[in-house]
Design a protein around this nucleic acid. Structure first.
Lengths: 226, 226
DNA sequence: TCAAAAGTGTTCGCTATACACCCATGG
DNA sequence: CCATGGGTGTATAGCGAACACTTTTGA
């Protein structure tokens, strides 16, 4: 039993995990096995351990659910409304993670964890609907100016895949040729002279993101923009 | 005495309050009257009350220190490293506020609260140095694309003041004429045909920010950019 | 040989940038 | 009458947006 002179809220971390299947933005949810909201879907999350930072907690949740030991992760927001948990006062520090969907271990808990297309997410436990909205909003904001899209793609990808990604997240349409020209001129992609065989039509070249080049440009005051 | 089955961290809010004196970005600090770090400067902050959200807590801190009942305020980051407070585990939800420096009540606690120029901030209590760095970084990031600069200026201001503000925060230099033309073309400023008398040289016109116009443009997909 | 997807160019208009000129005021 | 600061205009380069042509491959 732990005793304090003043009331202390509980503190949890939740981790909104985004993936991209080549067409749509996806989010990983787990089905709650206990009350409250038993049977409802929610983000992976749990109580913060006494000796870990919120970031470590979020990484732990990410690992437990996906098997990934590292991935892009970023603090999103802390949700602290007094009534957000029916049991007691619970504050949650929410993170969002961007993962390469192919690297996520197949659901060993079969039914417990599942990817949902962003437009097809069911009603969630607690205030997780709100957290999701905020996460999507933040992801959209961030992807305009930072090269985080690559976190969602495999190491090697085609221009078409990259374009699909941006179009899916930003809900816009780019002209294929302008997109191609722009990325080419930016100089932050390595052109691997390999071609992929999508077993269809003409084969496309593969590209990879050159982070060093990006950092160098950024240093010089360059600003990425979509 | 409050008892819990599991250990609960303490939760506080801290509020980084920014102001602009016409030349430099300023931040409001308070001198700690109790241990730990007694005598050191820190951000206004305190324990989160059981029935208030973090935002309400931050607004309360803002009010107590400045007398302002409303101002631009935004959650910055939650700092949760286990060792950030020497007493016990304390998590702080940090906000930053942008205030019109002239509207802040004169320091009634005389010596307790004081404005510091951003380049002239002393070593702070706890991990508040880090919080300040993060706040400045975030402010800079945000001001590139959102019209928050006006929160730091009086209702009516001159082009020169606005330019000084952007230059001070972003540490860049704009050509006066280009800055003027740009803002004019944007159409988010109302030209008050009043002139200020800075009792020096030619009098400058006053402008005010037209939020409605900005929102309308934003609606149409317009993106502000500095 | 035709449709679908991919690589590559061209043109045009807007805007950021660099820079010039004139006016008003106070010393 | 000159120095200082403020209002306003103009030319150029570069990038985004619209759009065309050619090539490869599978049906």
């Amino acid at each position: 039993m732990y005793q304090y002179k003043y009331p202390h809220p509980s503190v949890t971390t939740d981790c909104v995990i985004f993936g991209f299947d080549g067409n749509k933005l996806q989010v990983l949810l787990v089905k709650r096995g206990i009350e409250p909201y038993k049977g409802k879907w929610a983000f992976p999350g749990g109580f913060l351990k006494l000796d870990e930072s919120a970031r470590e907690g979020a990484l732990r949740e990410l690992r437990e659910e996906t098997g990934l030991t590292d991935a892009y992760i970023k603090q999103l927001h802390t949700f602290s409304e007094p009534e957000r948990d029916p049991r007691e006062r619970v504050i949650t520090i929410a993170y969002y993670a961007l993962v390469k969907i192919a690297e996520v271990k197949g659901g060993d808990d079969a039914e417990d964890a599942q990817w949902f297309t962003i437009d097809d997410v069911p009603s969630l436990a607690f205030d997780h609907d709100r957290i999701l909205r905020k996460a999507i909003e933040e992801l959209r904001r961030q992807i305009h100016f930072e090269p985080i899209g690559f976190e969602l793609l495999p190491e090697k990808f085609t221009m078409r895949e990259l374009q699909n990604l941006y179009e899916a997240i930003l809900s816009v349409h780019f002209d294929r040729r302008n997109f191609y020209n722009k990325l080419r001129r930016l100089g932050i992609l390595d052109e691997l002279k390999e071609r992929v065989n999508p077993s269809q039509k003409k084969e496309a070249y593969l590209y990879s993101f050159n982070k060093a080049k990006y950092d160098e440009l950024k240093q010089k005051g360059f600003r990425l923009e979509f």
